[in-house]
């Protein structure tokens, strides 16, 4: 279980995150939503040790600052919004980088590591691409390669920053379905999400951040109300729901 208490992240004199408290249960998928600059990404980066913070961040009751770097990387896999994907690396080599926290400092990958990579590739239907260069992949395939690298990390927690950026509508749905299916193997997911309709359809729970702190949290139908989106996004929307789920439709003022 992830537990954040009174989390605060500062960049110089500006507070990107303040007084933020949040819990994510095991095997839950929680999505952070909120307007640009609300602090969504900073929460993820602080949690996985990339940003210094005040307050408490615990995983299964243990302060994340007491973990060593590699230990933390075996616990949480972080996928940034725009991952660096060196075009000359092959898919297999790239996914193999996910094994880094499992290797000694100067160690070289062994059988177990190659097997974990092969499993991650198979899980994401990337086996035929194993020897292809990252530069030759389409956006959707690249996104899968990035997920495969995170999966090869064999971490029980997945932190995803805008996992659907720069994907077309169909690829967005495929990526989210894929993440959802990975959860069946036992995976806790905390992600940020730009698209509110997709957020409402895939998240177990939504947390709306505004100016660095939690404004509203709850089930998608509780959080995604026209009033909330007007108040925090300054957006004019109509919420439509039917048996298929909830739809956030922008309306012209």
């Amino acid at each position: 279980m992830i537990e954040l208490r009174d989390l605060a992240v500062r960049f110089g004199s500006t507070e990107a995150v303040r007084d933020l408290s949040l819990e994510v249960a095991n095997d839950e998928w929680v999505m952070l939503i909120g307007p640009n600059g609300a602090g969504k990404t900073s929460v993820l980066r602080a949690l996985c040790g990339l940003l210094p913070f005040d307050g408490a961040a615990r995983v299964d009751g243990r302060d994340v600052r007491t973990f060593g770097r590699r230990e933390l990387a075996r616990l949480m896999a972080f996928v940034p919004q725009n991952p660096t994907t060196p075009s000359e690396l092959t898919v297999a080599e790239y996914v193999l980088l996910g094994r880094t926290p499992h290797l000694g400092y100067l160690g070289v990958d062994g059988r177990r590591d190659r097997k974990a990579v092969a499993q991650a590739l198979e899980r994401l239907d990337l086996l035929p691409f194993a020897k292809r260069g990252l530069g030759s992949l389409s956006g959707g395939e690249l996104q899968r390669a990035v997920l495969a690298r995170a999966l090869a990390q064999e971490a029980p927690i997945l932190l995803l920053d805008e996992p659907t950026t720069s994907l077309d509508l169909g690829r967005q749905q495929q990526a989210l379905e894929l993440i959802d299916s990975l959860r069946r193997d036992g995976l806790t997911v905390l992600s940020t999400m730009h698209d509110l309709t997709l957020a409402g359809q895939y998240a177990d729970r939504l947390v709306l951040l505004d100016r660095g702190t939690v404004a509203v949290e709850g089930s998608p139908s509780e959080v995604l109300s026209a009033a909330n989106l007007a108040a925090y996004y300054g957006a004019s929307v109509r919420i439509v729901s039917d048996e298929a789920g909830l739809f956030v439709l922008p309306t012209r003022r």
């Binding site: 990339l50 060593g68 990387a73 972080f78 940034p80 991952p83 660096t84 996910g98 880094t100 926290p101």
Partner: peptide, 16 residues
């Protein structure tokens, strides 16, 4: 090779 994914991602893979 790990550094080729950039400083931040290398750090998230447990590299100092």
């Amino acid at each position: 090779d790990v550094l080729s994914v950039g400083d931040e991602e290398a750090a998230s893979l447990g590299v100092n």
